[in-house]
Each structure stands twice: as structure tokens, then as C-alpha cells.
Design a protein around this nucleic acid. Sequence first.
DNA 1: TCTCAAATGAGAGTAACTGTCAGAATCTCG
DNA 2: CGAGATTCTGACAGTTACTCTCATTTGAGA
Lengths: 194, 194
Amino acid sequence: MTSPGLRELKKARTRRTIREHALRLFAERGYAATTVDQIAEAAEVSPSTFFRYFPTKDHVVLDEDADPVLVAAARALPEGVPVARGLREAILAVLDGHTPPAGDMLAMTRLAFGEPDLRARTLEHALATEAALAGILAERLGRDPGDMRLHVFAGAVLAAWVTAMRTWSAEDGVRPLAEYLDANLAYLEAGLPL
Amino acid sequence: MTSPGLRELKKARTRRTIREHALRLFAERGYAATTVDQIAEAAEVSPSTFFRYFPTKDHVVLDEDADPVLVAAARALPEGVPVARGLREAILAVLDGHTPPAGDMLAMTRLAFGEPDLRARTLEHALATEAALAGILAERLGRDPGDMRLHVFAGAVLAAWVTAMRTWSAEDGVRPLAEYLDANLAYLEAGLPL
DNA sequence: TCTCAAATGAGAGTAACTGTCAGAATCTCG
DNA sequence: CGAGATTCTGACAGTTACTCTCATTTGAGA
């Protein structure tokens, strides 16, 4: 076990500080109206350092490559059940244990889908999640990872996810996110009848 | 009837010229390595003019808001059939009459999904198409445009579309795009069993 | 031909990055 | 604990996408 080490600690703290100030400033004056220099100044680091921690301005808001909730759910997929059903259960289970403060999440979601620059990054994020999901499913089902069906299916799951998030944030979170998500996953499970 | 008019003609020509030179340069030296100034110089216009015709560099490659093929197909949706089936027929019909040179399309597709900047724009494009599709479906079916099912369904159609394009371009177009698309839409029609 | 509106080009300015380099902070090992 | 190796940081210069403004040119219509 390597002890944390002062260097690691400081790095983690700096990263957190930058993100906090950035999100605060975005909330106060808007994403586009906030410059990296301002964030750096507020966080008391140089602009160079900002870019050492985050490759681009939008990565402050969205950093992970694939959504951890969906990936965890896919890994926890029960066997012997139709995938859509299993995924629905797994996602809701993971989401249940994994609840960040609803207020923050609402603000982030609004940013992620509202600001044009961030929307683009959000969608890249969704694409990465789709790929991860398809990969895990390929492994679980013993199929060729290039099988288009896996990708179409994973894309549909992402559509359910994105639609739930957007609707939830559009309605200011009056009802819990899980409800919207469950409705969409149930619809997917039913085979998307129209 | 407004006659074409010299002004309109020149505008159309300038737009086409800029795009042609841009795509040529992108193919020659890559998207990121080509600057707007170089495109402007090649097209014999000032950089200012470039931005009057295209709001951003990536709009040279992807300009429309929603994919015209999918939108046209949705509008041509036959009645009385399940939507997935009708859409499958309509899309293939539209695609049949609407075949741009496969080589160009392949190059554009590779750019659109390969270059990170463009991938982001491509996905925005997909999102706009999803919204348009959901809107048309709402009208056709007499449903609330906010109905999440419409958006999940439209998202799944987009997933079928995107997956087909990516696979097609990854395989260098050895088989026609319509084949991949048909396979994915058939899978969607079957209710995405896994 | 003359006048008005639209298109263009030139130039200055902003902001997101990128790369380099010297100095400071941390770690490691004797 | 102290010296040397390693890593982090800030300063700075440079590139590029994009914005705004203003003077000039070009096409449209009387």
C-alpha cells in the first residue's frame, strides 16, 4: 500500500478547488462568460496549471470517459434474464446507492445540455458510454464486439438515459430521476412499440 | 417568382467554392492541420468572408441542422403500419433516390466520426435530428411532443443510423450503406431483442 | 446613370489552448 | 537530516478560432 503522500493530496485538493470555483463561476455568470483565466485566478493557480489538470475548459464539468453508473450496472448484469430487463433492475439499483446531491446534479445537467459547447462534450461522453456498454455486453453474451445489434441496443439505452435526464432537468427535478429512467427502460424492455 | 439574380448566384458559388477547397485541404493535410486562413486563401476570399458563410470551421463539413434523409422519411411515413416498419421502408426509399457519390460520402463520414472536433458536431447534428424526428412523430400520432417514448424511439432510430454509418465507413464501404441500415432497422422493428 | 442595400476585406481584439523553460516543492535514499 | 533526483508550478511567447467595426466595393432597381 502506498501511503497517500503529500504530493497526491495536494493534487487532489487542487483539482477539487479548481472544479469548485469553476462551477460556482459558471453558475454565477454563465459558462461562456467565464474565462479560464478567471477560474485560475479564483482557484489561485496559474492558467497553465488549469490546463495541466483539465485538458479543456469543458472537462471541468464532464471529466469521466464513460458514465460510471451505466458501466457499473452493465457489469452487475444478472444472468438468465433478458438483457433489457436485467439492465433496468441493475441501473436502478446502482442509482439508488449512488445519489449525489440532487441540487448539484440538476445544475450540472442543465449546464451539460444547455450550453452548446458542453452539449457537444456531453454527447461525446454518451458515445463513449455506448461503446463501453456494447463492449461489456459483447463479453457477457459472448458475441463479436463489432456486432451492430449490440451498438444499436446500447444506443437505445443511452437514448433512454439522456431523455430521462433532459426531461428531469426540464421539469426542475420535481420528481426523482429514477422515475423517468424507469419509465424509459420499461418502454425499451417492451420493445419500443409505437 | 424571384429570378435567381446575380447576387444569389455568386453567393451560392462562393459557398460551394469554399467548401470544395476546405474538403480538399482536409483530405490532403488533415482537418486539424488545416487553418481557416488557408482555406480562405485557397478559395480566394478573406477570412472574414469565410465566417460569414460558415459560423464555425466544422460547419464547412456539416451544415444542415437535421438530417434531411431521416426527416423526409418521417414525413413520408405510411399510415396504418407500425411506425418502425413504416420508417424502415420510408428511409430506404428516400435513400435510394438520394445517393450522393459514395466516395465523397465515405470521406465525409470518416471525417465526421474520426476527428474529435467534428465528432462533437456530428453528435449535435444527431441530437437535432432526434428532436425533429420526435416532433414529426408527435404530429403524426397526435401525441404530446414531450412524450418521452417518442424521444427514446427517435433516439433508437438515430442509434441505428449512426451505427450503420460508422460500421459502413469502418469497412470502407465494401457493401452499400443501405444494407447496414436495413439490418439495424429490422432489428429495431423486432423490438431490440438481446 | 444614379442611388441604396448588401457583400466584402482589412484590421484590431479576445480567449482557448500549446510548448518551453527556469525555479520551487516534494520525494528518496544514504 | 541533507543532497540529489523527480515532479509541480508559473511566466511567457505563440498559434488559431472567432468577433466586431468600419471603409470600400459590387449588384439591384428606378
